[in-house]
């Protein structure tokens, strides 16, 4: 488990606490995977495995590029995949509102990943040089594109599990579902684009100062 050194713009958790929360969430995902394997439910097992591996992306980014992802972003990413994973166990079917929660969360998940990839490329590679004013365009494109890639992954997972005879780890619920995903994605993209071009920075530091004052720090 890597050291996440960089402090968050938006969170006031310490690094150590954040690490514990993330570890706890990863443990949940690992438990889902193990339970799935133990009970022969391949769909559940691959669900757990897939989502668990996503949580290691920040670590890989750091190892490869030396890029420490924003701590708040790491936490958000982990929460998002846990909600997805847990949802596949039942809540998706049992509660119709659960879908709305995960739509919003997964949209910002994809947006966050898109933002992280862009920042990593910008900071640690020679391929691109983007002035801050234009960052928004790149983030929106990245996020929308990744939304389509996600749809491709879902499509492929259904096709593959059909062939293998297992229950699909990711279930698509029709055209409405896909379009809703894309729309939420776009909204998430715009939000992250504004965040990325630091339109929120003033707001974030304002809240941070208030929180510090109220805690008497």
């Amino acid at each position: 488990m890597p050291e996440i050194r960089q402090n968050s713009d938006l969170l006031v958790l310490t690094d150590a606490r954040e690490r514990w929360v993330v570890r706890g969430l990863q443990a949940i995902l690992a438990a889902i995977m193990v339970y799935g394997l133990a009970t022969g439910q391949l769909g559940m097992a691959s669900n757990g495995a897939l989502t668990l591996s996503v949580t290691f992306v920040p670590a890989i980014l750091q190892r490869t590029y030396g890029y420490s992802m924003d701590v708040g972003l790491v936490l958000w990413l982990t929460i998002a995949v846990v909600l997805h994973s847990v949802g596949a166990l039942g809540p998706y079917r049992d509660y119709s509102w659960y879908d709305n929660i995960t739509h919003t969360v997964s949209a910002s998940l994809i947006a966050g990943v898109g933002y992280a990839v862009l920042r990593a490329l910008e900071v640690h590679s020679d391929e691109i040089d983007v002035p801050k004013a234009f960052r928004g365009l790149f983030i929106v494109v990245f996020v929308l594109a990744m939304g389509i890639v996600w749809e491709l992954v879902e499509f492929a997972s259904v096709v593959v599990s059909d062939m293998v005879g297992a229950r699909a780890p990711l279930i698509v619920f029709g055209i409405d579902d896909i379009i809703t995903d894309l729309l939420f994605n776009t909204a998430g993209a715009v939000v992250v684009a504004l965040w990325g071009t630091e339109s929120f920075r003033g707001l974030a530091s304002f809240f941070r100062r208030r929180l510090r004052r109220s805690r008497g720090r």
């Binding site: 020679d126 391929e127 691109i128 040089d129 983007v130 002035p131 234009f134 790149f138 929106v140 494109v141 990245f142 929308l144 594109a145 389509i148 890639v149």
Partner: peptide
């Protein structure tokens, strides 16, 4: 003023197409 390599320009064009 945005600068990018040829490789990135083409890759980014593909991503923009998906968008």
């Amino acid at each position: 003023p945005v600068e990018m390599s040829v490789r990135f320009a083409v890759a980014f064009a593909v991503l923009t197409a998906l968008a």
